[in-house]
Design a binder for these strands. Sequence first.
DNA 1: TTGAGGGGTGAATCCGACG
DNA 2: GCGTCGGATTCACCCCTCA
Lengths: 381, 381
Amino acid sequence: MSRDKNLPLDQILVGDCIDLMNRLPERSVDLVFADPPYNLQLGGDLLRPNNSRVDGVDDAWDRFDDFASYDKFTREWLSAARRILKDDGALWVIGSYHNIFRVGSILQDLGYWMLNDVIWRKTNPMPNFRGRRFTNAHETLIWCARSKEQKRYTFNYEAMKALNEDQQMRSDWLLPLCTGSERLKDSAGKKVHPTQKPEALLYRVLLASTNPGEVVLDPFFGSGTTGAVARALGRRYIGLERDLAYAEAAQNRIAAVKPMTEADIVALRAKRTEPRVPFGTLVERGLLKPGEVLFDERRRWSARIRADGTLIAPLGRDLEGGRDGDGSQDGGVVGSIHSVGAAVQGAQACNGWTFWHVTRDGMSLPIDIFRQQIRAELAGE
Amino acid sequence: MSRDKNLPLDQILVGDCIDLMNRLPERSVDLVFADPPYNLQLGGDLLRPNNSRVDGVDDAWDRFDDFASYDKFTREWLSAARRILKDDGALWVIGSYHNIFRVGSILQDLGYWMLNDVIWRKTNPMPNFRGRRFTNAHETLIWCARSKEQKRYTFNYEAMKALNEDQQMRSDWLLPLCTGSERLKDSAGKKVHPTQKPEALLYRVLLASTNPGEVVLDPFFGSGTTGAVARALGRRYIGLERDLAYAEAAQNRIAAVKPMTEADIVALRAKRTEPRVPFGTLVERGLLKPGEVLFDERRRWSARIRADGTLIAPLGRDLEGGRDGDGSQDGGVVGSIHSVGAAVQGAQACNGWTFWHVTRDGMSLPIDIFRQQIRAELAGE
DNA sequence: TTGAGGGGTGAATCCGACG
DNA sequence: GCGTCGGATTCACCCCTCA
């Protein structure tokens, strides 16, 4: 859980994010969430330091200069972030069409491996006042692993599915802007930060791609939404922010956050982390008996249970299965519930737990219900 | 209207699109729509949960050695496209996270000026079978002008607004994949092209950013969706396609398209925003009465009209609706015709005007007919 | 005719623990 | 690090069959 590295956990460090990241230990952070500045230089006239206007020398070159400096900045902070990410770490960036294409390209050039681009669809975007374009109603996030080669990354599939009415979470997220009481205001009622992100956005990001106790670093901490949500969700944060006023506002904001209880946070446990139950256990415990015959749901194939927890299936199709006598070895496929299920179907793989059924009281039941029964017993102990 | 330049109008040229573009006169084309290879980097096979194989895009034209070679290709075709665009021309590109960030960056480097990035949200995307990522449920389009300095570009604001319930068209478009009878199949029933785009997508693109008679060039013509929609909408097309089989299929497809009448096209183009009619107006005018019950077309859901022009629907399904007494607040969903329609269906959005029906003389009529009636009155005044 | 149900399929960077 | 193998994993829509 990364308490080893002397990380400045649950703190905001004030300074240049590239410098600060370069001083942190490498491979120490689970996630980076970044909301970098958009390339604001692209707007109006380009002025020299003495305020004279750069005149039509070569617009393309000027543009290249603008983009080049933004690209250089982007390469630097993304490189620094990659150094401090753990091998199984990941990174999120958010941006708009002004900068996200530069960021995405550079990400890929640096060896990050894209997992998804995610669209934040705004319920309440600013309209296009002049009627010259489509209402710019979304922003783009990129979710990427530290590298293509890395073994694993965190994705809490079940939690995301639960958040989305028990259907897979899609790559387009409909969320309102940060307004109302969530929006930080100063004593004069002026908004503290121009681009404060909604907590719901970070909630989804952190819930999807971190586990409780893990460390998320935000190099452009701003008003501290990342920290506030991390604290609420039982994650640790490191905030980097150049502007002291922002950092102080964020600090106060986070201090007021009440963390969720551990029970609430762990509520959704992934299926794939449930304890493994060998099929043989079902036989050992007498839930299934050696010699019993299993069928697929539509009774196209059958297989007989052997005492060691393997199955044996006849070679061709077999509509009735049994009646071979008791221990006869009639030259069939032998193996695990999975491999025999795959073999009879001629498939590459098969989940034997859901494929094979057994008859009880005239009903056809998947053998997985016996596994669930054993898991329930294990959980109760 | 560009009949000056000896362009190969309404034709498909077979060959390398960069060569072909370089042979066309410069500044001769109004719009470029491009659906370049995405540079997917697929590993082995992907199996569905039922063990069937996903028919992925493994065509030679989508394989590049590395990002550098993809970038070089992208720079070349985008440069060639820019040369043949008129000074007030524009370009659309579509892509996915695999390539769109490279394309977007290079666009900007070459001097194109982004107007919007547009998200095509798919109603029916392929699920993520392994549960390892978010469902990749969208693709990204970039709409850009030839240069930042250009005076004008075409944007049919009113037509877009009319297409979107009289509200500004947003940058996220919800459209289904190209399936069913629209999808080109060969005599064996196999899809002709692996990535055929839906006509509705091109319809919106061309309606938004071209005028009748203008020329749209598609350098990756494929199955010819751009040409088919251009012909239907009274635009001219130039298709460039390397693969002769694709070109022939596209040719046949386009020949079968029946162009809309000029009157229809002009109507679309000139369509003024129709006056907004609040639902409450129908109640005010007595066309509908408070307490009346609305149904969806198939009478699966119902809602009662309240005096203020909102609806109230019972929480669960309700086949008969009424008989609650007059002003009772029996704990249902309350809101606009649109929000209640969405809520009862569990949908994110709903056009209440076409969703809700009312019974008149034993017939079920959409409430939109009353809006039309009021609009007719307003137009007559 | 209509409805229920089964099968097919779409631009996809789609596994990981354990020995 | 690599091979083995257990076993987890899908949504909307269209078409067809059959009752």
